[in-house]
Nucleic acid binder design. Sequence first.
DNA 1: CTGAAAGCGCTAACAC
DNA 2: GTGTTAGCGCTTTCAG
Lengths: 365, 365
Amino acid sequence: MAEPKSSRPTIVDVAEKAGVSRATASRALSNYGRINQETAKHVRAVAESIGYISNELARAMRVGKTKTLGLVVIADFTNAFFDRATKSIVDAARARGYQVLITNTDEDIAVERNAIETLIEKRVDGMIVVPSTAVVHDHLEPRRLGETPVVLIDRRLDGLRMTSVTTDDFIGTEEAMRHAISLGHKRFGFLVATAGVKGSTSERPPVLISTIEERVNGFMNAAVEAGIKPRAQSWVYCQDDPTISEAAVAKMLDQPKAPTIIMASNNDMALAVLKVAGNRQLTLGRDLSLITVDDSQWLAAMSPGITVVARPVELVGQIAVEKLIAEIEHPGQPTEKIVLPTELIARGSVANLVLRPELDPEYKE
Amino acid sequence: MAEPKSSRPTIVDVAEKAGVSRATASRALSNYGRINQETAKHVRAVAESIGYISNELARAMRVGKTKTLGLVVIADFTNAFFDRATKSIVDAARARGYQVLITNTDEDIAVERNAIETLIEKRVDGMIVVPSTAVVHDHLEPRRLGETPVVLIDRRLDGLRMTSVTTDDFIGTEEAMRHAISLGHKRFGFLVATAGVKGSTSERPPVLISTIEERVNGFMNAAVEAGIKPRAQSWVYCQDDPTISEAAVAKMLDQPKAPTIIMASNNDMALAVLKVAGNRQLTLGRDLSLITVDDSQWLAAMSPGITVVARPVELVGQIAVEKLIAEIEHPGQPTEKIVLPTELIARGSVANLVLRPELDPEYKE
DNA sequence: CTGAAAGCGCTAACAC
DNA sequence: GTGTTAGCGCTTTCAG
């Protein structure tokens, strides 16, 4: 005649079986307030024995904290930045007792708005977002967000008073360029992955996300500094799509005075260079040079290894979590724009034209 | 004299401002039951105007569904399988109105137990798990899980009556071997990433996770079928650590009759082969051959491209989500062990020793 | 078609 | 040191 009792045991089941009140059971299980250690032990034993698992939903509702963080990334976390960032965020959060709810926008602002709304509905305590676009949108305005703190990663959004954790891609790219210049390169290609561009173009789009903008500026700064003429630079803003980027690389290489080195703004672009080089039997670090951004095990393992502007991705994730949780647990933190340094890892993909000038097809002697 | 009203507007705020009862407001916002369309429109307008965002916590508590899925992956979603799997799961879930809560165990059973407990506390409607070990553990027993449905991916757990979505790595590896054999290879190395092994050993560990076990069996089956003697096979079970796997590769290649081809059980192992080959100036597809498992853009873009047993990762994720949601929304589905076919993608990393027997150092003429 | 009221499972005053 | 009780914000009978 026992009731079916299909669903999970609740705290009142525990309380009844332990012969105490709900309050005492709660105190025992959450270990707070004054409580007799004997009773507590007994209650916990009972809970364990009937397979009680607390209902965080109910608790969250009562205390107003879900111990959950929202993560809003753009499409591709099949990407040297986002996979590592995600992992470091999940790990850092867990270490501090938080879980993470993931959403991905497809670089689409409408999806992003939606994702953020959903996260608020689920009442995450805070969120980490990679903004889809460079222009500020109302879904990140305080009025929508309410009390929910947000920290931005990877990309800044200047119009907003919001903490962000990014990397110094300006200096990173500049360093990479200086490295190439010091190795004797004189003609440069720059393959810039640009969301929102259809196909490819050499015209600078009006707005670029901050990361890309910094890479562009860093490149330009170094070029100017070294007196490299615009005609010795091939810029291509390119949709992030293999067919298109490969065509762009091919076109770049087919120019009369083709670049000796291509700078790829991200790994998808580097992949295109690799592909085209492979098809044309060009050996990297000899027939063509390459530098890309964001290190990965593959770049290190290939022969030659690919020279790269490495960003401290794990650190970005960790700091973002830290700052976010700080604000959650002690509201009123100052907003900060944290910028982490990158590191140039020189491997074999950049030919040394100083030592071997004959590798430059334009070299006359 | 307006109250501060710091936190978010609730449904009663909406109701008051709209001059209706909570019930009507709820009906208007969730669009159910009988309600005058005029009233509904008005209520929704008011909600919008005061920036009302529904509290899913409260709703979940009432209706008993969180519209959230839990995902428990092992450590590395910096990995050609898990990054893509995660993305496809998040996408598939979102398409059906579910969010996903991510957790990662570090291939550690205690962490896994914990993760699952946490997900239950958060009352996810179901979960997708990549089990850490091959042996069944009580935290996946029905008693712990209660009503919460689970589907396993990547690895089967035979003792459990539970739906799983995996790939046919037995046939996949067998095909890969046949391919190598047809190209004239006679001496094989097999580098098996094995959790739980310290360092590396040629002795088969007692239990292997199902994926690895199938790869091992597929390899063996093809070897037996082709009459390849055990002495022509170098097996190494290897901890998943660069230093150790690279040492294992080096040792393999330093044997008197070194293999002409190495089969890597996963991409970390392939990376080790790449590294060692690079250090020794060995060109893949000529001086040494390589096949690995799980395709990635890198493998395709390198020169030569790496031949690979490609698994339908996105499909695994999608089907897992589909099956899980089916069980959530219509409990009582039959449990299924779904096994998806792999595909061998032949690229240039396997030398053709039939056409060019001289590439085999043991070749005498 | 709309309102009143109960209750999901939990914690935190407030009594005792 | 423990129990009573009032909600957290929502949906859903049940009346009207």
